[in-house]
Write a protein that binds this DNA or RNA. Structure first.
Length: 216
DNA sequence: CTCCGGATTGACT
DNA sequence: GTCAATCCGGAGG
């Protein structure tokens, strides 16, 4: 039996950059959770950038509160909050102290520990297992209680490692999800980033055709 | 496949 | 009191 590899988390300066760049470079990276019993690994396939004060979709644009405090601190920490009473959302804090920005991790694909993920998702497997931010945290057992404010560069509990790089041609940009309350310029901004799979390309082409039809 | 309503509770007005 | 960076199941096409 082989020993578990030592954690090799991405360093803090990875997160200390413009948030859109971080969101882009996180695609293809490995998200790792280690509870001391088992190490789970997922490859990041979808992210959203939240750009701080100026972004009316970003929680921190309403000011500094106990909940958003961690976003105002140093980069490379986890911001985990609960939405709709029941779902934990994982964000990675970016940019310098005083710039309250973050990247939401929306979807992964399994790399290691898939059977545990399936069990935590109540037997759900395949396409619908990890394709949403609440599904992903449920499968990985990421919670506000256990992981909010955690240092992602310590290699303890939760961190990111390099994975398989993604070329610019394989990234699809689109508007972010679930932020209808934001100002139009932020609501419609293409700050949702996804790795393009053949299935996703087909799906979007189909949608575009329907849209064109409605125009006439 | 798409559309629609209910679940459930912390955070903030 | 209202709302939220969501998910799921059921109804209809």
């Amino acid at each position: 039996m082989s020993a578990t590899p030592a954690p090799a988390p991405l360093p803090r300066h990875f997160y200390d950059r413009p948030t859109l760049e971080v969101a882009r470079d996180l695609l293809g990276c490995h998200l790792i959770v280690d509870d001391g019993e088992e190490r789970l690994i997922g490859r990041i396939t979808e992210t959203e950038a939240y750009l701080g004060f100026m972004d009316t979709a970003c929680h921190s644009s309403n000011g500094r509160t106990p909940r958003t405090e961690v976003m105002f601190g140093p980069p490379g920490h986890a911001y985990v909050y609960i939405i709709y009473g029941i779902y934990d959302m994982l964000n990675l804090v970016t940019e310098a102290v005083g710039e309250p920005c973050a990247v939401l991790i929306r979807a992964i694909e399994p790399v290691q520990g898939e059977e545990t993920m399936i069990a935590r998702r109540n037997g759900k497997r395949g396409r619908d297992m990890l394709n949403g931010p609440g599904k992903m945290t449920r499968a990985m057992a990421i919670t506000k209680t256990a992981h909010n404010r955690l240092d992602l560069c310590s290699g303890e509990g939760l961190w990111i490692e390099p994975g398989t790089p993604v070329s610019d041609d394989d990234i699809i940009l689109g508007p972010r999800i679930g932020i209808d309350y934001a100002e139009p310029e932020h609501r419609d901004a293409p700050w949702r980033l996804r790795i393009a799979t053949p299935q996703l390309r087909r799906q979007l082409e189909k949608k575009a055709r329907q849209g064109n039809r409605a125009e006439e």
